[in-house]
Design a protein around this nucleic acid. Structure first.
Lengths: 369, 369
DNA sequence: TTGTAGGCGTTATCAG
DNA sequence: CTGATAACGCCTACAA
């Protein structure tokens, strides 16, 4: 046993002996284990374990002594060994099926913000909700890794098969979604981070109205996502406050992709009279609308006002900078991760974040004539 | 012992008994362990372990039998237990300090491509190379998690402190960088994925020359990154083949950010005669150049040709679509992850990827007059 | 080719 | 409040 001489030395010299042993240990530069701490602190490893896990049943004196040794020799519990004993890992899974790189990175960064210093790491797991193995893949991921928890991002955060899986696996999870799931039948109650896109959209709509726009083109999001409904409702409500409605011929389908925005805008701009403004339900589609407008020689905002949603990177890269609605994605993810590791949530937990209007150069008054 | 009845049943009925035991086990829907497999297959757990780890010293018959049981009861070895015994985890760390979301997601996706099906997961770890704790944070991450390997992304892939740390920790790693590290002194040899930006840039330069451009503005990348030097050399070489050089007054500093591109382009476009083309060392700066041009009422490409580098998402979102140079980032990361898990690399491993020109709408002939 | 004993580093159980 | 002992699920060393 490598540690016998240490233990012996410690036993021989009550105080200074201990110090020597510690110094000697440090000198050896070997990765410390709970046993080393126990020997050096003259307690059992169980006691050290109690200290690590903040068990209340440890005498303050003992705790301090153990903590001192831990700090001095730089002991950090091995997550694998801990995980084995706990029957779960110290890993949080971030599961998504979303093509938007910016969104993913924001969420990821936010989740990492929330995990920092907790000893829990983030494992990213993209997936394909259209694949046959969709649910099984995720089940395997969670089971094999014995994840401590899972964060589900839209759109799969609203997938019933997944919610059922979470239930079955009894794993802590939290979903990020655009709306309290009124239209989602089972399971009605799950912990969730909800973005209230509604207010921001209504605000944007009122901004358009205040600029005098009345004939407004609308490009919908992918209706399979709750966010598309939520945003639409927000925009419509805002317009309604000023007596404006969107006529059917200016109400275009879209799927949140650049191309769908481009094509929808082409159709919108081919009409006469032309709409003086276009609402796109996300920034990618707004960028597509820019392209359609520029190809027709139209100027933004002189000839056409465009607004988007997300405040993605692209919003400030296209010219002119896009007026859009911002969602605090990073904060949402931070909160999700945070409440996951702290276990401070139940099925009724529903934390709401508001969206907010960012006015930039793409919105202007109605062109004269 | 929960498994005693199973073992007993198996012992009692040599063949059909075994089948019953398996069926019964499956019925219980409990997560299988190596012990279950061993009992059901009537071998020791060590033999099962050998099968799992593809040890050659297992009789084919035995192997088949064990594999059959494994498949039937759906046994998957616990990575935590395995890791504890192996003294390392089954996690690969992706370490980066890079503001470009698109780049990160591409790399991440590529790495996950390479890891798929290997039983190794990806843990993302952003960091801050300017922080005091930079190296220590990463050391702790690697040590505590006992990572199986690490992928270092630029720019930190060229940080000597990190390379020294990798050496000290003796951890398998691979760096992604823009250039064979001729100018990096220690350690000269490390496994690396190298992008040869040079050829693509030279090609782009020749494209400009063929369009008749002679007065060309240049916006440098961040010179702390090897890529900035590599790209510059590529562009210069390509231009040199046509006897073109960049005059000092058209040679602008930049740091790869949108803002730096915007400001540099403002300076360039204020000169007279104006350059007829601008080379930006990445797409973000090219987007900045677009803004500067548009603010002056210039049209692209009629009044000004712009080219970038990366073929990031933004390249096709701005109008007109940007002529740029594409790097196969995803493939690079896939290769990195792949060679890491397969251990098929040594300090002389250096896999090179070529960049390639993507001609789009932002480049056109020199304006007349 | 296969099995036995012991260990990896931590926590749970239960007695003191 | 503390500690001995037995897990957790797998692998290494050494035998057989």
């Amino acid at each position: 046993m490598a540690r016998t001489p240490l233990a012996t030395a410690a036993a021989a010299a009550p105080r200074e002996g201990t110090i020597d042993a510690v110094e000697e240990f440090i000198r050896r530069r070997k990765k410390a284990t709970i046993n080393d701490v126990a020997n050096l602190a003259r307690v059992s490893k169980k006691t050290v374990s109690r200290v690590i896990n903040n068990s209340p049943s440890v005498k303050p004196d003992t705790r301090d002594q153990v903590n001192a040794i831990i700090a001095r020799i730089g002991f950090r519990p091995d997550p694998q060994a801990r995980g084995l004993a706990f029957r779960r890992s110290f890993l949080i899974g971030l599961i998504y099926d979303n093509p938007n790189a910016q969104y993913i990175v924001n969420m990821q960064t936010g989740a990492l913000d929330g995990l920092r210093g907790t000893g829990t790491e983030l494992v990213v797991h993209p997936c394909d909700r259209l694949a046959d193995s969709f649910v099984d893949d995720i089940r395997e991921f969670i089971e094999v890794q014995r994840l401590a928890g899972v964060i589900l991002l839209p759109p799969i955060a609203d997938d019933r098969r997944l919610l059922a899986l979470m239930d079955e696996l009894e794993i802590p999870f939290i979903r990020v979604t655009a709306r309290p799931g009124e239209r989602n039948v089972p399971p009605l109650h799950t912990p969730q981070i909800v973005s209230r896109d509604h207010e921001g959209c209504a605000e944007a709509a009122e901004h358009l109205a205040s600029l005098g726009h009345k004939r407004i083109g609308f490009i919908q999001g992918n209706l399979q996502y709750p966010s598309a409904h939520e945003r639409r409702a927000g925009f419509e409500d805002g317009l309604a406050r000023h007596g404006i409605t969107i006529p059917p011929e200016l109400d275009m389908a879209g799927d949140y992709s650049f191309d769908s925005g481009y094509k929808a805008a082409q159709t919108l701009l081919a009409q006469s009279p032309r709409p003086t403004a276009i609402i796109a339900c996300n920034d990618q589609m707004a960028a597509g609308a820019y392209h359609a407008a520029y190809e027709l020689g139209l100027k933004i905002p002189a000839d056409l006002t465009v607004i988007g949603f997300d405040d993605a990177d692209v919003a400030t890269r296209i010219y002119p900078p896009l007026t859009t609605v911002r969602l605090p994605t990073r904060e949402m993810a931070r909160t999700a991760a945070d409440s996951l590791v702290n276990g401070e949530m139940n099925d009724d937990t529903s934390i709401v974040f508001q969206a907010k209007l960012m006015i930039r150069g793409s919105s202007g008054p109605v062109p004269k004539g």
